[in-house]
C-alpha cells in the first residue's frame, strides 16, 4: 500500500514537472521530449452494460476528470456489452489498435472471462495502465446452517464435495474463482466443487434463502443487510484485512481461517496494443493525477470502494501474475482451454 502511494506521489510529481516543462518549451512535444496527452477527446470503453460495476467505474472516472478539470480534453464513456467484457476486449484490439485516446475499463472478471470463454483475443495483447479499485468477496451461509466457521464448511467440502451446493455469479467469474482457489488451499479437488451459477446477486440471494444453496459467494457489500438482520451468516471475506460485511465488526479473512487465499475483485484501466512507451507513461500520468485528486477520493468514499492503486510497472507485474493465477485455477476447475 505504502509503495503504491509512493509510486503515485512520485508519478504525480513527475507528471507535474513534465507539465511544467511543457509549458516552458512549447516545441517539446514534437521532439524527443514528453508526449502531450491527451490531445483530443478520450474515449473510455466500458465493456459491459450500463449500471454494473465497470460502468460505474468508467462513469465516475469521467465525472472526476470533468469536475476536477484534471485534463483539458473531454472524456466520453461508451458501453460495449457482452461475454465478461471479451467482446469489448476484441473490439479494443482490432478496432482501436495503436490509438492512445481509447481506453478500456476492465478487471478480474475479464481475466476469468478470457479463459472460460476461450476468447481468441488475450489480455496480454493490451497495454496495462493501472488498477484502481477492488472489492473483497464474502462467503455466506443461511442463518440456520450448521456451518459456523469456514473450516467446518471446507472440511465437508473436502470430505463429500457433492453435499455442498455453492452458488454465485456467472460461470468462470470471481465467485467461482474464489471457490476454486479455496478448494485448492484446503486440499480439496477444485473440479469436484459443485458450483451453481446465477445471473446477478439477486438470484443467488433468493436461492440461498430458499434452501437451494449451502453457501453463497458474492461481493462483500451484496449481503450486508441480510447479514445485519441475521438472515445469513458471513463466514469469511477474501481480502488481506477483514471488513465489516454487516455484522457490526470486521469479518474474519480467509487467511484468518487458515487458508492461504487472497482474492480481490479489482478493476483497472488498459490501453489498446501498439501504444509507444512515452505515450503509455503519459496515460499513466493522467490516471495518477486522477487517483490523487480530491474528486476520486470522494468517489471512493461515496461508493465504498477500496483503493487498490497500482500503476506503471507495478500494474504490469500484477496483471501478469493475476493472469497466471486465474488461468491456472480455472483450468483446474475445468473451465480453461
Amino acid at each position: 500500500m505504502k509503495r503504491a502511494v509512493a509510486v503515485a506521489v512520485s508519478a504525480m510529481l513527475v507528471s507535474g514537472a513534465l507539465a511544467g516543462c511543457e509549458r516552458d518549451s512549447p516545441g517539446a512535444a514534437n521532439g524527443s521530449g514528453p508526449v502531450k496527452y491527451p490531445t483530443k477527446t478520450v474515449q473510455l470503453m466500458v465493456p459491459a452494460a450500463p449500471g454494473g460495476g465497470w460502468d460505474l467505474t468508467g462513469r465516475t472516472m469521467q465525472k472526476a476528470f470533468t469536475d476536477g478539470k484534471l485534463i483539458d480534453q473531454s472524456v466520453e464513456v461508451y458501453n460495449v456489452t457482452g461475454a465478461a467484457g471479451t467482446i469489448g476486449l476484441a473490439q479494443l484490439v482490432s478496432k482501436n489498435n495503436g490509438d492512445p485516446h481509447h481506453l478500456m475499463v476492465m478487471g478480474l472478471v475479464m481475466v476469468g472471462g478470457v479463459v472460460s470463454n476461450k476468447s481468441p483475443v488475450k489480455l496480454d495483447q493490451v497495454t496495462p495502465i493501472a488498477t484502481l479499485t477492488a472489492e473483497q468477496e464474502v462467503i455466506v451461509v443461511p442463518a440456520n446452517s450448521k456451518y459456523q466457521t469456514l473450516k467446518q464448511l471446507m472440511d465437508d467440502a473436502k470430505a463429500s464435495p457433492a453435499s455442498i451446493n455453492w452458488g454465485g455469479g456467472s460461470a468462470g467469474g470471481t465467485d467461482q474463482i474464489l471457490i476454486g482457489l479455496l478448494a485448492k488451499a484446503a486440499g480439496a479437488d477444485p473440479k469436484a466443487m459443485k458450483y451453481v451459477a446465477y445471473s446477478g446477486g439477486g438470484e443467488s440471494k433468493a436461492a440461498l434463502l430458499a434452501g437451494d444453496l449451502t453457501a453463497a459467494v458474492s461481493g462483500q457489500s451484496e449481503f450486508k443487510d441480510l447479514v445485519s438482520s441475521g438472515k445469513v451468516r458471513a463466514l469469511a471475506v477474501s481480502g488481506a484485512k477483514g471488513v465489516d460485511v454487516g455484522g457490526g465488526s470486521p469479518a474474519k479473512t480467509i487467511k484468518d481461517e487458515g487458508y492461504d487465499v487472497e482474492l480481490m475483485n479489482w478493476r483497472g484501466i488498459v490501453a489498446p496494443p501498439g501504444v509507444d512507451e512515452p505515450t503509455q507513461q503519459a496515460i499513466t500520468a493522467m490516471i495518477d493525477k486522477l487517483h490523487t485528486s480530491e474528486q476520486w477520493k470522494a468517489t471512493l468514499a461515496d461508493q465504498g470502494w477500496e483503493d487498490f492503486y497500482k500503476s506503471g510497472a507495478d500494474a504490469k507485474a500484477y496483471f501478469t501474475s493475476e493472469n497466471q493465477r486465474i488461468t491456472g485455477v480455472l483450468t483446474e476447475i475445468g473451465l480453461g482451454g
Binding site: 450500463p50 449500471g51 454494473g52 460505474l56 446477478g200 446477486g201 439477486g202 438470484e203 440471494k205 433468493a206 434463502l209 457489500s221 451484496e222 450486508k224 443487510d225 441480510l226 445485519s228 454487516g246 461515496d302 461508493q303 465504498g304
Partner: peptide, 23 residues
C-alpha cells in the same frame, strides 16, 4: 430483501448502493 427480479430492479439496486442504502 434486496433481491432484484428484473433488469430495471437490478439497476435500481445499484442506485440504492450508490446512496449507501442497503435494501
Amino acid at each position: 430483501l434486496g433481491i432484484p427480479t428484473s433488469a430495471t430492479a437490478a439497476v435500481m439496486l445499484a442506485a440504492f448502493q450508490i446512496f449507501n442504502l442497503q435494501p
